[in-house]
């Protein structure tokens, strides 16, 4: 039932990290990205479910005060190896806006088929307050050149020592960024549900892995499919080449004797 209690630990850190984010005009990073090793790259790449669960925890603590995962249904968290009861409990901690039977705007507890909601009341207020609505993060790891490396480098790329115009921050990946540094100065008390105390880099790695999962939840399935399909295709390629040679030998033998169809036909 670890996940049912996750949200209660939502600390002041989340409030501190609330703020604006900006959509870059291009998907390209401003500088070279520091390349990372991920479990999910490579032909047999897979997700580490424990890392994804930690990433979800970081997302809840540091990201969701501003961002949403509008394409990620709670039910799909079963891909993180979370039990159905735990997912239901987690979903019910979120408030989903709806119009009740009296026709009034109201909220109800989330259910399996809801997605991670947007915490800010409405996009117009977000734009009025921050100048830009913080983007939905569901597909973000697919939407930038460099993918997971981009997300990780951005998350660890803050340098508060740099001078910036009002309301903007310095980041190695996006030189002028409206998203404030999500990391509070003191994280010594922060710990994962299993009791470990992750470094800033570890949190960034875990939440990046989680965001890569939200963007590409069926990656493992695709990799396994790829192995089977490519092996099948290679077998068919070899077999059809042999068959072609067999047929070619027959056709050429026949050609010597009687020739092919009449070209004048």
């Amino acid at each position: 039932m670890r996940f049912g209690t996750l949200l209660k630990t939502l600390s002041t850190a989340a409030v501190l990290s609330a703020g604006a984010a900006a959509t870059p005009a291009t998907a390209e990073p401003a500088g070279p990205l520091e390349s990372q090793t991920w479990s999910f790259t490579g032909p047999l790449g897979y997700y580490d479910e424990m890392q994804l669960q930690h990433g979800l925890y970081v997302y809840q603590t540091r990201c969701q005060a501003c961002h949403s995962l509008g394409l990620v249904r709670f039910a799909s968290l079963s891909g993180l190896d979370v039990s159905e009861e735990a997912i239901k409990a987690l979903a019910s901690t979120y408030e989903i806006p709806y119009i009740n039977d009296d026709g009034d705007r109201d909220t109800r507890p989330g259910v399996m088929n809801d997605s991670f909601p947007w915490a800010l009341d409405n996009p117009k207020r977000a734009i009025a307050t921050y100048g830009k609505a913080p983007p939905d993060l569901s597909t973000m790891a697919r939407a930038r050149i460099g993918g997971a490396d981009y997300v990780y480098n951005l998350l660890v790329g803050y340098d508060d020592a740099h001078e910036q115009p009002e309301g903007a921050y310095y980041n190695k990946v996006m030189k002028v960024i409206k998203m404030p540094n999500p990391w509070p100065a003191d994280m010594s008390d922060f710990e994962y549900p299993n009791g470990t105390r992750p470094s800033l880099e570890q949190q960034a790695r875990d939440v990046t892995a989680f965001l890569n999962w939200t963007a590409d939840p069926y990656l493992e399935e695709r990799h396994q499919w790829g192995i089977i399909v490519v092996l099948y295709m290679l077998a068919l390629t070899v077999l059809s080449f042999l068959a072609y040679r067999v047929v070619a030998a027959k056709v050429h033998a026949k050609l010597e004797v009687e020739g092919g169809p009449d070209p004048e036909h």
Binding site: Y232, A235, L236, L239, S240, L242, A243, R245, V246, V247, A249, K250, H252, A253
Partner: peptide
């Protein structure tokens, strides 16, 4: 045409048929 192809006409058909079955 390799000597094996000529010597084993039945093997040829087997390969052709398995290619078609596989496809």
């Amino acid at each position: 045409e390799t000597p094996t192809d000529v010597a084993n006409p039945d093997r040829r058909n087997f390969i052709v048929l398995s290619t078609m079955a596989m496809a």
